[in-house]
Amino acid sequence: MQSNISGDSPSMLITGANGFIGKSLCTELLRQGQFVRAAMRFGNLPIENIESVSIGVIDGETDWTNALLGIKVVVHLAARVHVIKDNAVDPLDELRKVNVDGAWNLALQAAEAGVQRFIFISSIKVNGDGTLLGRPYTADDQPAPVDSYGISKFEAEDALRHLAEQTGMEVVIIRPSLVYGPGVKANFYSMMHWLEKGIPLPLGAIHNKRSFVALDNLVDLIITCIDHPAAANRTFLAADGEDLSTTELLQRMGNALGKPVKLFPMPIWMLKAAAILVGKRDMAQRLCNSLQVDISEARDLLGWQPPVSVDDALKKTATDFLQKL
C-alpha cells in the first residue's frame, strides 16, 4: 500500500536505515515518491535522494532534535539484536540500554516534537519461542518472551504504549517472524550455503510448521501502517501467510537455487541429541519445533495481504545469493 504522505522535505524518519530491513524500506519509500530522512549511528545511507543523519550511540541520552525536525512519522528499526562474545555481567541490561531506554527516549522526543505516529518494529520473540502445531501466536496473546532480546522488546512495547496514553502520539507495533530476502545473513544464509554446496542434511523428516516473512512483505506492511487509520495503537504480527516445515523450506529453497536437495531422514530425538552433544541445542529447537503466526489482525483491520508469494520471495533471495558467490 502506498502512503499518501508527501512534501518537499522529509516527513518520515527511519532509524536503523542502513540495516537489512531499513535499506529496503528506504528504497521502496523513495520509489513511491516519498521524502525520507534516514538515521543511523554513523555515516550516510548510500542511496541517492535520501537525507541521512548520524546520531551516534542510541541509548536513553541520545539527542534526536535535528533528526526529528519536520518529522510526522517515525519508523524505529534500530535495535541491539544480540551481543557477540558478550562479557557483560548482565547481557539483558546491555540490551535494555538500546532496545528499551533508547526506544523510549526517541519516542518521548518524537512526541514533544509533534510526531503523529511512531511505528516500532518489535519481534515475534515477544510472544515466545515456539507454538504447538496448529496453534499460532496471535496479536492478542499474553506475551511470554523467554530470552533477553524478547524481554527487552516486550519492555519497550510496554513503555511505548504508556507513552502513547500520556501524550496522544499514535504507536503502532509490528512483530515480524523470521525475515528473509536478498542480503539475509545468519542461519538462513547458512542454509542456502549448505544447499548450494550439495551437502547432505539429516532434515528429511521434520513435520513442524514455521512462519517466515519475506522482506518485501514486511516492508509492505510497514508502509501500510504509516498512515492507515485503523493501525493506530494496534499490534500486528508479520508473516507470509503460508507456513512451512523445515523439510519443505529446504526443498523449496533448493528449487529456488536450482540445486538438487540431498535430505535424509533422521528421527527428531536423535537429531536433538546430536545437537546437544555439539552444543547446538538452540539450533535444533529452531529446526524441529513449530513457531506459527496468525496475521489475521493485519488482514481484518488493514485489509492487508502479503503481496509476494513464498516461492517468488525465495527465488529473489536465491538469485541475490548466487549473484554474490
Results as ranks from 00 to 15, higher is better:
residue 101 D to I: 01
residue 98 V to L: 04
residue 80 R to D: 13
residue 93 D to N: 09
residue 86 D to V: 02
residue 86 D to A: 09
residue 71 I to F: 03
residue 92 L to S: 06
residue 87 N to M: 13
residue 72 K to T: 05
residue 97 K to N: 04
residue 79 A to I: 10
residue 93 D to Y: 09
residue 100 V to Y: 06
residue 103 A to K: 06
residue 74 V to L: 04
residue 81 V to H: 10
residue 76 H to S: 03
residue 92 L to F: 06
residue 98 V to W: 06
residue 74 V to F: 12
residue 83 V to C: 12
residue 91 P to I: 01
residue 84 I to S: 07
residue 76 H to P: 10
residue 78 A to S: 10
residue 73 V to Y: 10
residue 90 D to C: 10
residue 85 K to Y: 07
residue 80 R to V: 08
residue 79 A to F: 06
residue 71 I to R: 00
residue 97 K to A: 15
residue 82 H to E: 12
residue 85 K to H: 10
residue 94 E to I: 11
residue 89 V to P: 00
residue 98 V to S: 01
residue 85 K to Q: 14
residue 100 V to R: 05
residue 97 K to T: 06
residue 95 L to Y: 15
residue 81 V to I: 14
residue 86 D to T: 02
residue 97 K to Q: 15
residue 74 V to R: 02
residue 76 H to D: 11
residue 83 V to L: 15
residue 88 A to P: 00
residue 89 V to D: 11
residue 101 D to F: 12
residue 94 E to A: 15
residue 91 P to N: 08
residue 92 L to V: 05
residue 87 N to E: 10
residue 97 K to R: 15
residue 71 I to T: 05
residue 72 K to M: 00
residue 85 K to T: 03
residue 75 V to C: 05
residue 94 E to L: 12
residue 72 K to N: 04
residue 89 V to M: 04
residue 80 R to F: 04
residue 72 K to Y: 01
residue 99 N to T: 13
residue 77 L to Y: 07
residue 86 D to F: 01
residue 83 V to Y: 08
residue 72 K to E: 06
residue 84 I to A: 07
residue 99 N to K: 05
residue 73 V to N: 09
residue 95 L to C: 10
residue 74 V to D: 02
residue 75 V to G: 03
residue 90 D to Q: 12
residue 96 R to M: 08
residue 85 K to M: 01
residue 91 P to T: 00
residue 74 V to I: 05
residue 75 V to S: 02
residue 102 G to I: 13
residue 95 L to T: 11
residue 94 E to P: 00
residue 71 I to P: 09
residue 100 V to I: 13
residue 87 N to L: 13
residue 89 V to A: 15
residue 89 V to G: 03
residue 78 A to R: 02
residue 83 V to A: 13
residue 79 A to P: 05
residue 100 V to A: 03
residue 101 D to N: 10
residue 94 E to R: 12
residue 95 L to M: 14
residue 81 V to R: 05
residue 102 G to H: 11
residue 84 I to G: 00
residue 76 H to Y: 07
residue 100 V to E: 05
residue 72 K to I: 00
residue 90 D to M: 09
residue 102 G to D: 14
residue 87 N to V: 11
residue 99 N to E: 10
residue 94 E to D: 15
residue 88 A to E: 13
residue 82 H to C: 06
residue 98 V to A: 04
residue 93 D to I: 02
residue 83 V to Q: 14
residue 92 L to R: 02
residue 84 I to N: 07
residue 80 R to K: 14
residue 94 E to N: 12
residue 96 R to D: 05
residue 100 V to D: 03
residue 71 I to C: 02
residue 85 K to F: 02
residue 87 N to Y: 06
residue 88 A to F: 05
residue 80 R to Q: 15
residue 76 H to E: 09
residue 77 L to I: 09
residue 87 N to K: 14
residue 76 H to F: 06
residue 74 V to E: 04
residue 79 A to K: 02
residue 79 A to M: 05
residue 101 D to S: 09
residue 73 V to W: 08
residue 81 V to C: 07
residue 97 K to E: 14
residue 95 L to I: 11
residue 85 K to R: 12
residue 87 N to P: 01
residue 73 V to D: 03
residue 103 A to G: 09
residue 91 P to C: 07
residue 98 V to R: 00
residue 93 D to C: 08
residue 88 A to L: 07
residue 75 V to L: 03
residue 95 L to S: 09
residue 96 R to V: 11
residue 88 A to N: 14
residue 93 D to P: 00
residue 81 V to E: 08
residue 87 N to G: 11
residue 89 V to L: 07
residue 86 D to Q: 05
residue 77 L to A: 05
residue 96 R to F: 14
